[in-house]
Design a protein around this nucleic acid. Structure first.
Lengths: 213, 213
DNA sequence: AGCTAACCTGACCGCCCGGTCACGTTGGTG
DNA sequence: CACCAACGTGACCGGGCGGTCAGGTTAGCT
């Protein structure tokens, strides 16, 4: 499925270093956000700064590789939950997983929330995530577990929103996101309420053609 | 009320430049976030970079002055709505105003969402905003317009969360926040749902004594 | 073991940023 | 009008960043 490995005729230490580098970068980005210096990533991996650029052409490419990794994990999670018995708890579990991932990774929050930071490939993967979420949501919708006008894109967007709601409390109450996830779910099932305005696009494809003057 | 003016024995051009500077900084921070260079703020005001530091000791101080200005406006708005007839629509209007302000100001979002960026004075003002929101929420709660376990801090936190939910759509659908505000409000009134976990602290005072090693 | 191509390294470059300061300019007062 | 203190200015500084490259090192094949 996720074919980012491609270990063809590479030297042994190179594949080892690449693995170390990805692990170090994942941790560093999660902890400090996208602004973490390349030097610190290299240091965490026990390598020199130049080695980073031998594996990834730019910092953006390294970030994109890791974001794709995170997104693939979420997509896999959604696909797996699609086979669950109870579609309502499946959707709930998907959202719970998603918010938890966001809470543990600063760079992921920053990239998801700001389209201007996204590689083209990352945008594609986000669209795939919307599709997977739509499949889950659709099943829950048919069962009447969520109101009729909620889309998969809504669900994906809510992941970021729920985390952001709890984010200022993160140093004090790391689990506060559970409160706002519960609140959002209560809103999602409010079938008696009126229809929601401003339905979002189906696949969350956001172009940014506005190159500033 | 808000006593940040203090025009005592100042030269005429200085007060004029200070006003220009605050206007330019407000616009620049709103558009580009906290990372906007001081030089661009000075340029927008038609002044030199050094002049900025004659009025504010550091970039942080300038940012704090503007954030206090925004927070005061929201607090005033909440106090005014406290005298409205319908406490339910008053709360709704407060949240609508708040999210709209966030949608129009990148720096405000960044500061609200990340306690580590906040001046002590800004933290105090945020606590005051929580108090004002609690007063509004309390009135709505007594009337049964919102569920019992929603606090003013919840309402303030939701402002940031609702905006973040809609933020990725901002270039495409600038009004998308209305959808997620409606969704959140439906969750807030869901009186039949179970109690929410993890109640937040009353005043959102977040210390960050953890100076990293 | 010997050899080579692929790989790792860290000093180095250019850039941009926040902040400073000696100097020129100007508003207000007598 | 003359004077000066307060203010505006922009060249300058130190630091940190992403990214490069010539040269040392090593893995893997023969």
């Amino acid at each position: 499925m996720s074919g980012t490995t491609a270990t063809a005729g590479q030297r042994a230490d190179m594949v080892r270093n690449r693995r170390l580098l990805l692990e170090a970068a994942t941790a560093a980005f999660a902890e400090h956000g996208v602004d973490v210096p390349i030097g610190e990533i290299a240091q965490r991996a026990g390598l020199a700064k130049g080695t980073v650029f031998r594996h990834f052409a730019s910092k953006e490419d390294l970030l994109a590789a890791i974001m794709l990794q995170m997104l693939d994990r979420l997509i896999d999670s959604a696909d797996r939950l699609l086979g669950a018995d109870d579609s309502a708890t499946a959707l709930r579990e998907f959202m719970s997983d998603g918010v938890e991932v966001l809470a543990a990774d600063r760079a992921f929050c920053e990239v998801i929330g700001r389209p201007s930071l996204q590689h083209a490939e990352v945008r594609d993967r986000i669209a795939q995530l919307c599709d997977a979420a739509e499949a889950l949501t659709s099943r829950a919708r048919e069962r009447g577990a969520v109101r009729g006008d909620i889309t998969g894109t809504d669900v994906v967007l809510l992941l970021g929103g729920i985390h952001q709601t709890a984010a200022p409390l993160l140093p004090v109450q790391p689990q506060a996101w559970r409160r706002y996830l519960a609140l959002a779910l209560d809103g999602l099932v409010a079938t008696d309420a009126g229809p929601l305005p401003e339905p979002p696009p189906a696949r969350l494809e956001i172009a940014e053609p506005t190159t500033p003057s």
